[in-house]
Amino acid sequence: MNAHVTIPANATEAIELTDAERQPCEIWTRVMGYHRPVSSFNRGKIGEFNDRKYFTEARAKLG
């Protein structure tokens, strides 16, 4: 059931999906030099992932 939907360029209405139309988004992150999906983490690694602090170089004034 792959239907092609064309949205006009001047469309201003927000597109809303029902829960049945949504699909899960798999999150990957870099761990020890390689990338892995967060869904494969054990309980401890998920805790570490949730405790991470994110920054940008511009806001951290690193250079």
Rank of each mutant, 00 (worst) to 15 (best):
residue 47 G to M: 05
residue 46 I to P: 00
residue 61 K to D: 07
residue 42 N to A: 08
residue 45 K to F: 06
residue 46 I to G: 02
residue 27 I to A: 08
residue 54 Y to H: 01
residue 4 H to P: 07
residue 17 L to M: 06
residue 8 P to T: 00
residue 36 R to E: 15
residue 37 P to A: 13
residue 23 Q to T: 12
residue 34 Y to G: 12
residue 39 S to N: 12
residue 43 R to C: 03
residue 14 A to E: 09
residue 41 F to L: 07
residue 17 L to Q: 02
residue 47 G to P: 01
residue 3 A to M: 11
residue 60 A to R: 11
residue 19 D to E: 15
residue 58 A to F: 08
residue 62 L to I: 08
residue 9 A to Y: 02
residue 13 E to I: 03
residue 51 D to K: 01
residue 37 P to R: 08
residue 37 P to M: 04
residue 8 P to S: 05
residue 63 G to K: 09
residue 30 R to A: 11
residue 26 E to T: 07
residue 13 E to S: 06
residue 52 R to L: 07
residue 12 T to I: 00
residue 36 R to A: 12
residue 50 N to I: 01
residue 33 G to E: 06
residue 10 N to V: 00
residue 10 N to G: 04
residue 27 I to T: 09
residue 55 F to V: 13
residue 34 Y to E: 10
residue 18 T to K: 10
residue 45 K to M: 15
residue 9 A to L: 08
residue 39 S to D: 13
residue 53 K to W: 05
residue 1 M to P: 11
residue 32 M to Q: 14
residue 41 F to Y: 07
residue 51 D to T: 02
residue 51 D to P: 02
residue 20 A to N: 09
residue 63 G to Q: 06
residue 34 Y to S: 13
residue 8 P to K: 14
residue 7 I to G: 07
residue 6 T to S: 14
residue 44 G to S: 09
residue 48 E to K: 03
residue 57 E to D: 15
residue 10 N to Y: 10
residue 47 G to D: 11
residue 20 A to G: 03
residue 37 P to E: 03
residue 1 M to W: 13
residue 28 W to R: 12
residue 13 E to F: 01
residue 22 R to F: 08
residue 22 R to Y: 09
residue 44 G to R: 13
residue 30 R to I: 13
residue 42 N to L: 06
residue 58 A to R: 12
residue 49 F to R: 03
residue 22 R to C: 11
residue 36 R to M: 14
residue 50 N to L: 13
residue 40 S to M: 09
residue 41 F to H: 00
residue 11 A to V: 07
residue 27 I to G: 00
residue 4 H to E: 15
residue 59 R to D: 15
residue 35 H to L: 06
residue 48 E to D: 11
residue 18 T to R: 08
residue 40 S to K: 03
residue 15 I to A: 14
residue 2 N to L: 10
residue 26 E to N: 10
residue 35 H to T: 11
residue 1 M to T: 14
residue 26 E to P: 04
residue 5 V to P: 01
residue 47 G to S: 11
residue 51 D to N: 04
residue 63 G to D: 04
residue 56 T to C: 11
residue 35 H to D: 10
residue 18 T to D: 05
residue 48 E to R: 00
residue 32 M to S: 15
residue 3 A to F: 09
residue 49 F to I: 00
residue 37 P to G: 01
residue 1 M to D: 15
residue 50 N to Q: 06
residue 48 E to L: 02
residue 22 R to M: 15
residue 43 R to E: 15
residue 14 A to K: 14
residue 23 Q to Y: 14
residue 26 E to F: 04
residue 54 Y to K: 04
residue 63 G to L: 07
residue 26 E to S: 05
residue 60 A to F: 03
residue 26 E to W: 01
residue 7 I to T: 00
residue 40 S to E: 10
residue 42 N to F: 07
residue 21 E to Y: 01
residue 13 E to T: 08
residue 5 V to E: 12
residue 32 M to I: 11
residue 46 I to T: 10
residue 29 T to H: 05
residue 8 P to R: 10
residue 19 D to L: 13
residue 9 A to M: 06
residue 52 R to D: 01
residue 4 H to G: 05
residue 31 V to T: 06
residue 6 T to W: 10
residue 30 R to Q: 14
residue 10 N to D: 12
residue 37 P to Y: 04
residue 20 A to P: 02
residue 35 H to W: 11
residue 63 G to V: 03
residue 42 N to S: 12
residue 38 V to Y: 00
residue 27 I to L: 13
residue 51 D to H: 00
residue 28 W to S: 05
residue 6 T to V: 15
residue 2 N to R: 09
residue 12 T to V: 04
residue 49 F to A: 03
residue 17 L to V: 03
